[in-house]
Design a binder for these strands. Sequence first.
DNA 1: AAAAGCAGCAACCGCATCACC
DNA 2: GGGTGATGCGGTTGCTGCTTT
Length: 527
Amino acid sequence: MSRNAKVKVDNGGLPRDPIDSHLVDKGRGVSSTDGVVLKKGPWTSTEDAILIDYVKKHGEGNWNSVQKNSGLTRCGKSCRLRWANHLRPNLKKGAFSVEEERLIHELHAKMGNKWARMAALLPGRTDNEIKNYWNTRIKRRQRAGLPPYPVEQCEQAVAAEGQQNPSLHEINTGDLGFLPNGSCHIPDVVFDSLKASQGFLPFIPDLGKVSASSLLMDSLEQTQFGSQMSCMLNCRRGLISQCSSFGGNSEDLFSSLHPYDDSTGKEIMQSVGHSFSFDQDPAGKNHLPPFDVQGSHSFSNGNSSTSRPTALKLELPSLQCSEAELNSRWITSASPQNLLESVDRLIRSPPRSLQVESKYISPPNNGLLESLVYEATQSSAKNHSSDKNSNSFAPTPGDMGGSSLDFCGAEFDEYGDPISPFGHSATSIFNDYTPVSGSGSSLDNQPYADSFPVLSLKEEPFNQFQSPEREQETPAKSIYTWPDALLASSDWFGQPSGPFIGETPTSDSMAFVTGHDLSGDKGTAEA
DNA sequence: AAAAGCAGCAACCGCATCACC
DNA sequence: GGGTGATGCGGTTGCTGCTTT
């Protein structure tokens, strides 16, 4: 499907005159390299057919030769992308199923923005599709002021981590960080993890023997919202990671919560009955610059940015849940008063989730993800034994249980709802929370699919964005635009019914294939 | 009804990695 | 070991339709 109608495409096939001057200026029409004018922009059905035919004859790869051998005026990269994302068989189209969404969430929580690897575990889905899905969701949630992490996903993740790494579990189920004397306490196991990570995480300074609590709190205190954060660290350490999910600018988050009052944090602490009694090194000898652990760059603001590491590009472990769930579990706005109350309640009655053992899932999680990962690992071992990165689900720094990266994930996962102290009633958070086992998230309240659909086609009009006068330049809706010859070819993909794996093309889709405009409207009919 | 903003998607770009010479 | 081309990946852009104001 091409909605880029403004970008002129060719005239129903190989452009006789590919140079389209009015597109050159736009930078997305044609480009010229080595005297060969390469077309950009949306693909047409004819181009698709050419590419499909080429792949059928020559197989995948050698994409740069496509242009030479097939006459396509597309660069190799463009061809590869088109094939991978739209033309190759077994591609699923349409909305993600609930299972797929849940899997994406799990995978993203584990991998970060490794779209290709995630796509490898989602049959029929492309990295681009997953990426777009995720970015769209994240954007929407950010705009709504919601964190990307759903409760159950966090619980699952932390449960798995807890069982896999007892030291992390110690954090997960450990104390709240509130010592009898009211001082703040951060389990040093956290910093043990940090120290252990120093070898491969260059941004982590030499922690030496500095007190973990003093180190972090000292850093926090340098920030204008440090008081808030230090409180949150104790209340809900998961916020560390959570904040970073908002574009890495937790300052915005905080300011949005308390836009006019920098003293709110102190008030909170006072309301909680705590004072800032850090065990700071009085001489300041161990006064290390603030450091970032995963996601904790949110600690940095204008005051401490000079010591802000820049080497690490942080990926967000990202978790989501349905909007409905969010509505019930997350806050969208918060008043300082609510915040105070939340924290207060939190102190008085520690959340259930903090005491909960890893009961929701076992290390293999629900089995779906792990089995896929296992499968992929096996496959990867076979097919990519030479992968020098060895990152195909092999332990990476982020995957290593003892790493700081992981501890951060476990940290926020522990509490499931890391941002809640900012406004969501702690009571509501922990009382309302009901583990959603197995059901996964239901984004946008989409009805659950009973099973993983083999193919969920969402048919769209072939020429939905096409003006009548441009019928000959039909931008292709890839999967529906297979040439008749290819569809008729039962041996093309070993699928007697053509490329529509698991589903015989409907008459409509066949009509698409034949290039006949069935609808000028965008009414979509679920297959 | 018009304008503005949002959502979803396809495609492009730059960089990293790999394979081959 | 270095150079070069091919490929893969992740981030970003640009476009259109839809929704909201």
